[in-house]
Design a protein around this nucleic acid. Structure first.
Lengths: 207, 207
DNA sequence: AGGAAAAGCGAGCGAATGCTCGCATTATAT
DNA sequence: ATATAATGCGAGCATTCGCTCGCTTTTCCT
C-alpha cells in the first residue's frame, strides 16, 4: 500500500485575511510550476513567493500535493466553464454548427494557459487528483453524448458511446497538439483552417 | 539557466559482464517505474533491484535522468520498429488498407507495455529527452506524409502537411485513450469495432 | 604467471525537502 | 477593555537522495 498524501484543506479559511493567504498560495504554486517547473516547487519556495510562512501554508494545505491539486482544480474549472457554456449554447443547433463550436472551444480552452496545462498534465498522476480529473472527463463525455443522442436523426446508425469516445478523443487531440506543438505561433487563419478540417472530419464521420 | 543533467553514458561497456550490468540497470529502472512509480526510482533503489552497487551504476550512467532516458529510448525503438514495418508493408496499398493497418499498429504499440508508456509519457519532459522523442514524432509524420503524397489520386485536394497532422493526431489519440482508459479490459471484438470506426472516419476525411 | 586495465563495491557526504511546534500577532466578541 | 479564537511565523528536525571516492575483484593480454 502506497500512502497517498491527503489533499483536502486542513481547515477552511474563514476571515478575509486567511482567504487571501490561501489564494496567494495557490497563485504562487501555479506561477512556480509554470516559470520554474515542478522540481522547484518546494513548500518553502511556494511560501516564500506567496509572501507567507511555511507554517501558514500547512495551516491550510496538509501537503505539497494538496497545493498542486488546488491548482489543477482551478484550471479544470476554467476549462469546464467554457465547455459547459458551449454545449448549452449549441444544444438545439445542427451537428455541423455544434461540432465547429466544440472544436473552437477546445482550442480556446487549451490556449488559456498552455504552459500550466502542460505542467499539470504531467503532474496529475502523482497528486491523487486522477479521480477528479476523470470526473471532468466523464462530464464532458456525458454532455457530448446527450447532445449526440438528441440529434440522432441527422446521424447514421451508430453506437452513441463509441461515437462520443471517438469524437471527444479526436477533438481533444487536435486541440492539444495544435497548441502544445505550434506553441504561440498560431495565426488566426491557421486556426480557422484547422477548425474547418477537424469539423469536416468529425461531421463526415457522424453522418 | 537551469542545468540539465548529462544523459550520455560515462563510458562504454566493452566486456560481456559490464554489458550485462548496463542491461540489468535499464531493466531495473523500467520495472521500478512501472511497479513503484517515479518517486521510488532512486539511484540507490535502482542499483539494489539490479543487483549492482551504486558505484557501478555511476560508471555507466552519469545521472538518474540518463537511466530514464535509456528506458525511453528502448521503448521508443520498439514502437518505431512496429510503425516503420507497417508503413513499409502498406507503401503500395490503397488508402483504406493502409489506414486500417496504421490504426491497428497504433493500438498494438500502445499495448506493448501500457503502464510503462504512461509513466514515460509523464516523465519525458523532465529528462531532457523531449528532443529525442520529438525526433521520433517527426519521423512518423514524415513517413505518413510521404505515403499520403504518393496516393494523391485517391484523395481530394488537401494540404498534405495538414492532413498528416490531423490523421496522426487522431489515430494516436484513439489508440492512446483506448489502451489507457479501458486498460486491459479490451476484447478482440471491441478493438475490431474501434479500428473499423476510426478507419472509416480517417478515410472518409481524406477523400 | 603476472601485470595492467576494466569492472565492481558500498559507506557516507553534502544538499535539499517536507513538515512540526512553540510562540507572536491580529481579529472578533462580549 | 479583556478574553478567546483565528491567523501567522520561521528555526530546525528528520529524512531522503544523488552522487563520490578509495578500495577490491575480475578479466584480458602477453
Amino acid at each position: 500500500m502506497t500512502r497517498t498524501p491527503p489533499t483536502k484543506p486542513r481547515k477552511n479559511a474563514l476571515q478575509a485575511r486567511s482567504r487571501a493567504t490561501v489564494d496567494a498560495l495557490v497563485e504562487a504554486t501555479a506561477r512556480i510550476l509554470v516559470q520554474e517547473g515542478f522540481e522547484k516547487a518546494s513548500t518553502n519556495r511556494i511560501a516564500e513567493v506567496a509572501g507567507v510562512s511555511v507554517g501558514s501554508l500547512y495551516q491550510y494545505f496538509p501537503s505539497k500535493e494538496a497545493l498542486v491539486a488546488a491548482v489543477i482544480d482551478r484550471h479544470n474549472e476554467e476549462i469546464m466553464a467554457l465547455v459547459r457554456a458551449a454545449l448549452t449554447e449549441v444544444a438545439d443547433l445542427p451537428i455541423e454548427t455544434a461540432v465547429r463550436k466544440l472544436v473552437t472551444v477546445a482550442i480556446e480552452a487549451h490556449r488559456i494557459d498552455p504552459k500550466l496545462h502542460r505542467v499539470l498534465a504531467e503532474q496529475i498522476p502523482r497528486t491523487g487528483q486522477l479521480k477528479d480529473v476523470e470526473a471532468f472527463n466523464r462530464e464532458v463525455h456525458t454532455l457530448v453524448r446527450a447532445y449526440l443522442e438528441s440529434r440522432r436523426k441527422e446521424m447514421r446508425k451508430i453506437d452513441p458511446g463509441l461515437a462520443t469516445f471517438i469524437c471527444v478523443s479526436t477533438i481533444e487531440a487536435v486541440a492539444h497538439n495544435t497548441v502544445l506543438n505550434h506553441a504561440e505561433m498560431l495565426s488566426e487563419k491557421t486556426v480557422r483552417t484547422l477548425v474547418d478540417e477537424t469539423t469536416r472530419m468529425v461531421v463526415g464521420y457522424l453522418r
